[in-house]
């Protein structure tokens, strides 16, 4: 057990087993799919029309904002060139669906319906509509397994949006909580501060929302403060996720869906 927990010597057994156990996850997902279908079938036509109208309006607003963003991005690029700074990497995305969730409250992993044939790779970041969810740890032909940022073995470099202060957010095995470690008692951090990925380490692209500071605890006699962070992503609820391909990966450039 301990060898398996701390090493990946059994990864070949796990990979072999993963192919065989996929049907169990598929069957376990049937109730939620039936629920979605029933929900959709029982919804009144007028409600769907209203929702359609709302989504069209939202889409219009977002397109307008996107135009503004494109202008800002172009301006940012010009300024970076003037400063001789390195070029920002552009990201493309691929929509994916959750097909299985780890039943253990101690191991925060999930399976998604994209694999090798879609160009998914180990270490690839995944996010939902609200923020970063985690990264891919195993890739199979038609599906992949992702480790969530709330898993206690996961850590992500972050920075405070307000002042750029860097830290590392670690998972705590709690779907609603991350912790910032080793922040000194004089660190400039407040409740409500937004945290985004800093991009350090090169695994996660910079600028994606990670969470917001929920509470700050000062423990008497300790040199560090305890900072609890609420993840931005709906870790235990999101069904549809996005796989991020940075232009560094090359494989999916201009192939976003």
């Amino acid at each position: 057990m301990t060898i398996h927990y701390y090493t990946n010597w059994f990864s070949s057994i796990e990979k072999f087993a993963d192919r065989s156990i996929r049907p169990f996850y598929w069957v376990a997902n049937i109730p939620s799919r039936v629920g979605q279908w029933a929900d959709l079938s029982s919804t009144d036509r007028s409600v769907i029309e209203k929702e359609n109208l709302r989504l069209k309006q939202e889409s219009l607003i977002y397109r307008g904002q996107l135009q503004r963003m494109a202008e800002l991005a172009a301006e940012n690029l010009r300024l970076r060139l003037l400063l001789n700074a390195t070029e920002w990497l552009t990201d493309s995305i691929l929509v994916t669906e959750v097909i299985g969730v780890s039943p253990s409250s101690k191991s925060h992993t999930l399976s998604i319906d994209r694999g090798l044939k879609d160009g998914v790779y180990v270490g690839q970041p995944i996010l939902d509509a609200e923020g970063l969810m985690g990264q891919i740890i195993s890739v199979f032909e038609n599906h992949s397994v992702a480790l969530l940022i709330t898993d206690n073995t996961h850590a992500i470099p972050v920075q405070v949006l307000r002042n750029g202060m860097r830290s590392i957010a670690e998972g705590t095995s709690d779907y609603n909580n991350l912790q910032l470690r080793f922040l000194s008692t004089t660190a400039d951090i407040r409740v409500g501060d937004e945290l985004v990925s800093s991009g350090l380490g090169g695994r996660f692209p910079p600028g994606y929302p990670v969470g917001s500071v929920l509470s700050i605890g000062k423990i008497p006699g300790q040199n560090f403060i305890e900072v609890n962070v609420r993840p931005a992503a709906e870790i235990d609820r999101s069904k549809h996720l996005l796989l991020v391909f940075t232009s560094q990966d090359g494989s999916r450039n201009g192939n976003s869906q």
Partner: peptide, 20 residues
């Protein structure tokens, strides 16, 4: 056993997970 395994795998929200 297969049924119990599938029931165990049905996803639930984090709030309900300890009650599973």
């Amino acid at each position: 056993l297969m049924l119990a395994l599938v029931l165990q795998l049905i996803p639930v929200s984090a709030d309900w997970l300890p009650w599973k």
